[in-house]
Amino acid sequence: MPVALEVYDESTTGDRGEPIVLEFLTEEITIRELIRERVYQEVQDFNLKMAQQPVFRGLVQPTDAEQTLNGYKLKTARAIDWQRQFDMAIQAFEQSRILVLVNDRQAETLEERVTIAPGTTVSFLKLVPLVGG
């Protein structure tokens, strides 16, 4: 029986977005599996509803898209490749541009294990580089 986990996007100000519900086949997963499932689900959802929802609300910005207030708008309407998005998300995690917080503790590696239990909280925090000089 699949195990459900709610994950959230958070900002550095503490604002929390709507929950994203992910399902896993086991109660123990790695951070890599968590990121993979999240990216796969959000890309699948976008590709199915592309005509009604032209803005992609995802973990990382797709190639050939511009950032908008509520996500990323593709310059040309097209399906998004989940594997490419996953690769970019992994790279962002490895470069500390995306932090994964599990029960308010920062995950350090992609192979770190997470046990999904009642009350488990997972947040994704996107860090934005400062602009200036």
Rank of each mutant, 00 (worst) to 15 (best):
G133T: 03
R16P: 05
T115F: 04
V102M: 00
Y72F: 15
Q85V: 05
V55Q: 02
L130F: 14
N70C: 07
W82N: 10
Q85H: 04
V7D: 08
M50Q: 10
E111T: 14
V122Y: 04
M88V: 10
I35Q: 00
E112K: 07
A4K: 07
I90W: 01
L69W: 04
G133E: 01
I31W: 03
L130Q: 13
A117E: 07
V114M: 08
T26C: 03
A79D: 12
I20Q: 12
Q106Y: 09
R16L: 09
N70M: 09
T13C: 06
E18T: 06
D64I: 06
V3K: 04
Q106H: 13
E94Y: 05
D45N: 12
G132I: 00
T120H: 15
L22W: 00
G132K: 01
I35M: 10
G133I: 04
V55G: 00
M1N: 02
Q61E: 15
E18F: 06
F56I: 08
L69I: 06
F124C: 05
E6Y: 11
Q95M: 13
Q52C: 11
L125S: 08
E111P: 08
F124H: 05
E112W: 06
R16C: 06
Q95K: 15
Y8A: 02
R36M: 07
G119R: 02
L130A: 12
T13K: 10
Q53G: 11
A89Y: 14
K75A: 10
R32T: 01
E111S: 15
E33M: 09
E23H: 14
L130E: 12
T120A: 15
E42V: 08
E112F: 08
V114T: 10
T68K: 14
Q44R: 12
L5N: 01
V122K: 08
D15E: 15
Q95W: 12
F86I: 05
E10D: 03
L74C: 14
T68W: 09
P118H: 13
I116Y: 14
L125V: 12
S11T: 15
V131I: 15
T76V: 13
R36P: 00
T12A: 09
L48Y: 10
L48V: 05
Q106C: 14
G58S: 14
G58W: 01
A107S: 07
P62F: 04
E10C: 05
I116L: 15
P19T: 02
I98S: 05
L101T: 10
Q95G: 11
V100E: 04
